[in-house]
Design a protein around this nucleic acid. Structure first.
Length: 712
DNA sequence: AAAACATACATTTTT
DNA sequence: TGTATGTTTT
């Protein structure tokens, strides 16, 4: 495809600052990759190019695009966070840290904060860990260190928060750990306080490109500034209308002030849209115009008018879910590619009803929620072992694994070792090594500690080189393997998950030049939900509106357009936050190429409470006729009432799974005889409801229930 | 020490 | 609603 004149200006721009204000669907990604290729073919060394993307996925795609256009690879393409990890490893000494640092995720952070809360002795009810962490994250995003905040701290609450901030940082440091914000903070200060490091990097990266600049926070802004110092070859791209991470500290002002920061900047506006139909763009445009704090920007359609945007109301969320899934099914049946259909929602919990509808209708789908995998107990256990091996100071991880699986090192023992360690100014692990010197620990327990220490030492000796074989060893020697196979419940899946993790590590080993445990751990810590989206699977995708950023689909459904959900209730009080919600909606709308349906439910059950809802104000701002459930009923093809009922029964009666019909007599190993009251087919998650002769009625998972049919 | 049970509790988005 | 924590039981 030919480049437009604006696109060409952006691609061919060589030296000096460049701001690309790129609307949705304007071919921005293509422009960036073409620009990288153009730079290289004009004689710039690939190694002197540093491109920063918003997600790992985007970085991966950009790398592939550059390579596939026949250009020698070698340009550094990664996210801010990955870049920071690299720099911190390389300049660990100057940054005042050790290169084998652990990266603490939200759960780890929360545990550290709970420790801090205990130690600082605050009235715990007034300080929830998550809220305190949120404040601290805000300070860090603004590059405010403890001392700076302390200076201006007034009032009891602020002073407490500062003490918590201080203590929290001490805990992280003691564990040789950094949280997500620290990665940025450390690099920003590295560049600021070590001019020779900064100059070295300015020398190395002659061309800096930053995508999604509207979502950079102050720390990222300072890092970008430092990296561009000296040469000023900084190209940023973004769209203020798509800024959706204010809550995470992103400062839309960074992109708005770019021309002030870099007075000789060239500015290119990409306003033509090559993605969506005119009908969709008109709706997006109307909506975004309701934002007052906004720089006017046009959306210029280049594709035909297309089908009308649908806004459809449903009676409740169940009806909404089933109707949307039916529409997905109809699209697929009419020959549309299932992988070109997506459903977006405001909050992750809204995927549940949709999944149920997909399963019952036996349509395959994918939920884009990758980090969930890393939150599973067995995965966290495994990774905690690896962290202990890679970073001996990581006591948080050590505490997790020391008695997992259970090996007879209980709370009392841990308390004794901990207090002895403190008295002797040693780490917990060093103390555990000298269990014999600690008074009051039984001989048998001493032996258990010694065995554990020996195992860690042995595993640690094999820490170099590829990761997957090491993980196999850990799995085996730690006893996790046998605990997974003897454990009840979801044993099969827990085991599968660990195997999946090891497979992933094997892929890492073969795809990396110098695989190392430290590098592997630091990489997986930065995985995001979006990274889990598998476009090649050709399955209909379910994801949050945030995860949808940067993607596009032929057909898009946005569900739950109700006051309190979209816009979310937490943003209702504040005009700025409301505008951000509107931008979020705008992002969702502009993902669609051909078809868009926005829906709402008049009733919704939120945390167990069934209540009436109000349609989102955004629906009115979009200027589309709103169709109510009653309107739909007047349609000639409408299936009355339980419109989705037929499909459920169809699934119910199909073969391949044991059928439990109402009234059938069954026997349960524990509860005895009973009669089937209901059966819900959910694939392997099918449930049977049985009224037992004991009088109790229970809903059981078929795969665990161990029911036998009684013949009568 | 682990499982079973009970009860409180808080609910956005994510690198 | 479902999770996360605390309490009791085995």
């Amino acid at each position: 495809m030919e480049l437009t004149s604006s696109q060409r200006v952006a691609v061919e721009h060589k030296d000096g600052p460049l701001l690309v204000l790129a609307g949705p669907g304007s071919g921005k990604t293509r422009v960036i990759t073409s620009r990288i290729c153009q730079l290289i073919s004009s004689g710039v060394s690939p190694y002197s190019i540093c491109a920063i993307t918003f997600t790992n996925k985007a970085a991966q795609e950009m790398r592939e695009r550059v390579i596939s256009s026949g250009i020698r690879s070698g340009a550094h393409i990664s996210t801010f966070h990955s870049l920071c990890v690299r720099l911190l490893r390389q300049y660990a000494q100057q940054a005042g840290i050790q290169a084998n640092f652990s990266i603490y995720d939200e759960a780890d952070q929360s545990r550290c904060m709970k420790m801090a809360l205990k130690e600082v002795e605050v009235p715990a009810s007034d300080f929830q860990p998550a809220a305190v962490l949120d404040r601290i994250s805000g300070w860090k995003s603004d590059l405010e260190l403890v001392e700076a905040v302390r200076q201006r701290a007034d009032g009891f609450r602020m002073k407490m928060l500062v003490r918590l901030y201080d203590r929290y940082q001490q805990i992280l440091q003691a564990n040789n750990a950094l949280d997500f914000d620290d990665l940025l903070v450390k690099v920003a200060y590295l560049l600021k306080e070590h001019p020779q490091v900064r100059e070295e990097l300015n020398e190395r990266f002659r061309y800096l490109l930053i995508d999604e600049y509207q979502d950079t926070n102050h720390a990222q802004y300072q890092i970008a500034k430092g990296l561009a110092l000296g040469h000023g070859n900084i190209c940023v791209t973004g769209d203020p209308d798509q800024s959706i991470y204010r809550w995470r500290g992103a400062d839309i002002g960074n992109i708005l002030a770019f021309e002030k920061d870099y007075p000789n900047a060239t500015v290119v506006r990409l306003e033509e849209n090559f993605r969506s139909t005119a009908a969709i763009l008109a709706v997006a445009d109307k909506l975004i115009h309701a934002n007052k704090k906004r720089k006017e920007k046009r959306l210029v359609p280049t594709i035909g008018e297309g089908a009308e945007v649908q806004v459809q109301g449903y009676d409740d969320e169940e009806e909404e879910a089933y109707a949307v899934v039916l529409k997905v099914k109809a699209l697929i049946d009419s020959g549309e590619d299932a992988g070109e259909i997506a459903i977006f929602y405001r909050v992750n919990s809204m995927s549940r009803k949709l999944e149920e509808a997909f399963i019952r209708n036996r349509i395959s789908y994918q939920v884009v929620r990758g980090v969930e995998f890393y939150g599973r107990k067995e995965i966290r256990d495994m990774i905690a072992y690896l962290k202990v091996l890679a970073n001996p100071q990581d006591e948080l991880s050590l505490m997790r694994v020391i008695n997992t699986p259970a090996r007879g090192i209980g709370e009392t023992t841990l308390a004794k070792v901990t207090s002895w360690a403190r008295d002797n100014r040693l780490g917990f692990y060093e103390a555990a090594m000298r269990a014999a010197d600690i008074g009051g620990i039984a001989k048998a327990t001493q032996a258990k500690l010694a065995t554990f220490v020996r195992m860690i030492e042995d595993l640690r000796s094999g820490i170099e080189g590829p990761v997957a074989p090491l993980m196999e060893k850990v799995l085996h020697q730690s006893g996790l393997e046998s605990s997974l196979s003897t454990g009840r419940g979801d044993e099969g899946t827990a085991r599968d998950n660990v195997i999946e993790l090891i497979d992933g590590a094997a892929a890492y080993d073969s795809g990396t030049d110098n695989p190392s445990l430290v590098d592997y751990l630091q990489q997986i810590a930065l995985f995001s939900d979006t990274d889990a989206y598998d476009a090649a699977a050709r399955k209909t995708a379910l994801m949050t509106l945030h995860a949808a950023k940067g993607l596009e689909f032929d057909h898009v459904f946005i569900i739950g357009a109700e006051e309190g959900i979209l816009p979310h209730e937490r943003s209702a009080s504040n005009e700025d936050e409301l505008e951000e919600e509107r931008r979020l909606m705008f992002v969702g709308i502009t993902r669609a190429r051909k078809g868009l349906e926005v829906s709402f439910a008049r009733h919704r059950t939120t945390r167990g409470l069934f209540s009436r809802t109000i349609p989102s104000q955004f629906l009115y701002e979009m200027g589309v006729e709103i169709r109510t459930p009653e309107d739909a009923e007047r349609e000639p093809h409408h299936q009355k009432g339980e419109g989705h009922g037929e499909l459920i029964y169809e699934a119910f009666e199909e073969d391949g799974h044991p059928e439990y019909l109402k009234g059938e007599l069954v026997r349960h190993p524990k509860f005895g005889l009973g009669r089937v009251v209901g059966f819900i087919w959910l694939g392997e998650n099918s449930t049977v409801t049985v009224k037992f002769n004991t009088g109790s009625q229970k809903t059981l998972m078929l795969k665990y229930a161990n029911l036998t049919k009684e013949q009568f």
